[in-house]
Amino acid sequence: MPYSLVLNLVPQEAIPKSHLTGRHLHALFLDLVRSQSPNLATTLHGQTTAKAFTLSPLQPTTKQHIGTLQWTYRHAISAGTPCWWRITLLDDALFGQLAHLWLGLSSKQNWSLGGSPIQVTSVLGTPQSSQSWSNYSPYDQLYAQASDSNRKLHLTFCTPTTFRVSDYDCALPTKESVFKGLLKRWNHYSHIPFPDTLLEPVYPSFFNIRTELATDSRSKLIGCVGDITFQILGDVKPETIKQLNTLTSYSLYTGIGRKTPMGMGQTFPGKPDAKPRRQHLPKPRKSRRYANAS
């Protein structure tokens, strides 16, 4: 069952910018897992493909708006600042092994983010009116609730999203780079396999994206953020449409692209709340000499 858990955190000391990288958040997650199962932490650390979890960047605010996750920081996060942090789990067994962790996290216990002490005040695992990122859904429910008639597949890339093409990274999302990863994870973790030919009728129909830089102490990557819509074209069976809508919904839990366990590729499925402004060329002004001519 995919889970999207939101941890509400309070730093006990200021967290410097150097401790807010994906690498430090990845280490914090493994520390949380290690407190319950050292062997599981070792297994997760060693995964190279079909990662069973994703992590968001730390969000230093209680307010959240879809499409506006923060991944860069100009200043340190001050002590006492309410923050939230999202962890997604794709494997049913993984959540079960960590169930005692989520239930037993105490606000009296300090954890360390790159050496900065923090406290976990609560864990959200169900949809909230004030927090759209917390959710869960069994695989068969994700499939059952997917539309078999909706032909527009909307995605919002909320943190820089990049894809591996041959030996290099590419920030341009194509249907193959976006949906092949979703299909691979779905077939790996669910018990409802989808065919490899599923992507043939999918074509991009709208995009409002821009490139952004994601940096940490080890690397700099260029990714894309923004909105994109793929359309299902041609004479397509309802079953195929349903499967593609399922993958789109699944992106909430899997993220898209590379380094999703480091905060990149955070994705929200569905049509963005705000429509992009259309750009209009200014109307040419009439020449005064021409307007006064008789």
Rank of each mutant, 00 (worst) to 15 (best):
Asp216Asn: 15
Asp216Leu: 05
Asp216Ile: 06
Asp216Lys: 08
Asp216Arg: 09
Asp216Cys: 10
Ser217Tyr: 03
Ser217Cys: 07
Arg218Phe: 12
Arg218Thr: 10
Ser219Gly: 13
Ser219Cys: 11
Ser219Phe: 12
Ser219Ala: 11
Ser219Pro: 07
Lys220Gly: 14
Leu221Arg: 15
Leu221Ser: 13
Ile222Phe: 11
Gly223Ser: 04
Cys224Trp: 11
Val225Lys: 05
Val225Gly: 10
Val225Cys: 14
Val225Phe: 05
Val225Ser: 05
Gly226Pro: 11
Asp227Cys: 07
Asp227Asn: 12
Asp227Arg: 03
Asp227Ala: 13
Ile228Cys: 10
Ile228Gln: 08
Thr229His: 02
Thr229Trp: 02
Phe230Ser: 03
Phe230Lys: 01
Phe230Pro: 09
Phe230Leu: 07
Gln231Cys: 10
Gln231His: 15
Gln231Ala: 14
Gln231Ile: 10
Ile232Asp: 04
Leu233Tyr: 00
Leu233Val: 07
Asp235Phe: 00
Asp235Gln: 14
Val236Ile: 03
Val236Met: 00
Val236Cys: 01
Val236Leu: 00
Val236Lys: 00
Lys237Ala: 14
Lys237Phe: 06
Pro238Gln: 12
Glu239Thr: 14
Glu239Met: 08
Glu239Asn: 05
Glu239Gln: 14
Thr240Asp: 01
Thr240Glu: 02
Thr240Ser: 05
Thr240Asn: 02
Thr240Ala: 12
Ile241Trp: 01
Ile241Arg: 01
Ile241Asn: 04
Gln243Val: 04
Gln243Trp: 01
Gln243His: 06
Gln243Phe: 04
Leu244Trp: 02
Asn245Ala: 02
Asn245Thr: 05
Asn245Cys: 00
Asn245Leu: 05
Thr246Cys: 08
Thr246Pro: 00
Thr246Asp: 06
Leu247Lys: 09
Leu247Ala: 15
Leu247Asp: 06
Thr248Phe: 05
Thr248Ile: 03
Thr248Asp: 02
Thr248Trp: 02
Ser249Glu: 12
Ser249Met: 08
Ser249Asn: 13
Tyr250Gln: 13
Tyr250Ala: 09
Tyr250Asn: 11
Ser251Ile: 02
Ser251Thr: 04
Ser251Asn: 11
Leu252Cys: 02
Leu252Arg: 10
Leu252Val: 02
Leu252Asn: 08
Tyr253Arg: 08
Tyr253Gly: 07
Tyr253Ala: 07
Tyr253Pro: 08
Thr254Arg: 08
Thr254Met: 06
Gly255Trp: 01
Gly255Thr: 01
Gly255Gln: 02
Gly255Met: 03
Ile256His: 11
Gly257Asp: 03
Gly257Trp: 10
Arg258Asp: 13
Arg258Glu: 10
Arg258Ser: 14
Lys259Ser: 08
Lys259His: 12
Lys259Thr: 03
Lys259Asn: 15
